[in-house]
């Protein structure tokens, strides 16, 4: 969608920052992924339950990758907060979706 408006921006270049939903999703998934990864390496893998799979390790790896991907997406295509319809509004508005 077209986030670039013709109207003047009061705070040019201001990004959604921490409140960007992609940052929030990404950091939670990455933190949980890291915990599971460490549990998979150091804790009891309880393979009698999982049928011989180190479930924590693999689930942790996937979560970590997805989480980092979200944060990277946010870094690579940061959101510029639009001023065109709401003066003090500061919500994230990711481009391209």
């Amino acid at each position: 969608m077209s986030d670039t408006s013709a109207t003047a921006r009061r705070k040019p270049g201001h990004t959604a920052g921490l409140l960007d939903i992609r940052n929030i999703i990404g950091s939670l998934l990455a933190i949980d992924g890291l915990i599971l990864l460490l549990a998979g390496i150091f804790a009891d893998t309880e393979e009698e339950k999982t049928g011989g799979i180190n479930a924590n390790l693999w689930a942790g790896l996937v979560l970590l990758v997805v989480g980092v991907a979200f944060i990277a997406w946010c870094r690579l295509r940061p959101v510029v907060v639009p001023d065109d319809y709401d003066a003090d509004h500061d919500e994230g508005r990711p481009e391209g979706h």
Partner: peptide, 27 residues
């Protein structure tokens, strides 16, 4: 934490109820 961060954004009542109609479609 999200609730706390979002609190500073609440300016008028339309905002509180419908989030100022600013969220993208995928969210």
């Amino acid at each position: 934490g999200i609730g706390f961060l979002a609190k500073s954004q609440v300016s008028e009542s339309m905002d509180f109820f419908l989030s100022g109609r600013s969220l993208p479609a995928w969210v």
